[in-house]
């Protein structure tokens, strides 16, 4: 067996390279998010990194309000095409215009000195 996986560290290394990588459990074929060293639900450790398509759908949405004049900003839950759900921000639309069911695609940015995946409307 190869070295035991370091899920969190490896995820962030990929993210810095502009890649959204998911861990897939080879027993069930299901991808997970966030990446863990063991598959949630089954306990499988037969895991493999696969690259996400970046395509997803908004599952739910909120606008976090700030004290004016700072604008509110979007926080969404995105269902990825590969199955798992992640929290993220939808950009390219006014926060109030982000709706459940909106199709989105991933984009990589730097924020607070770290790589971050955000989503744009399709």
């Amino acid at each position: 067996m190869s070295n035991p996986i370091q899920a969190e560290k490896e995820y962030h290394k990929y993210l810095e390279q502009g890649r959204l990588m998911l861990l897939r459990d080879n027993e069930s074929g299901k991808c997970m998010f966030y990446p863990r060293v063991v598959a949630p639900g089954t306990g499988s450790t037969d895991l493999e990194w696969v690259e996400a398509s970046g395509k997803g759908t908004v599952y739910s949405v909120t606008t976090v309000r700030q004290r004016p004049p700072s604008p509110g900003y979007n926080v969404s839950l995105i269902d990825l095409e590969e199955g798992p759900r992640m929290m993220a921000r939808v950009e390219g639309l006014a926060p109030d215009d982000v709706k459940i069911g909106q199709k989105v695609t991933a984009r990589f940015i730097q924020e607070d000195d770290a790589a971050l995946v955000v989503f744009d409307p399709v």
């Binding site: 739910s60 909120t62 976090v64 929290m87």
Partner: peptide, 22 residues
Amino acid sequence: GGVESVYKPRNPVSSYALAAHR
């Protein structure tokens, strides 16, 4: 919560707001 906190939800309110919207 590290994978969430980078998007700055105002928790716990934002989590419940996401449930309410759904």
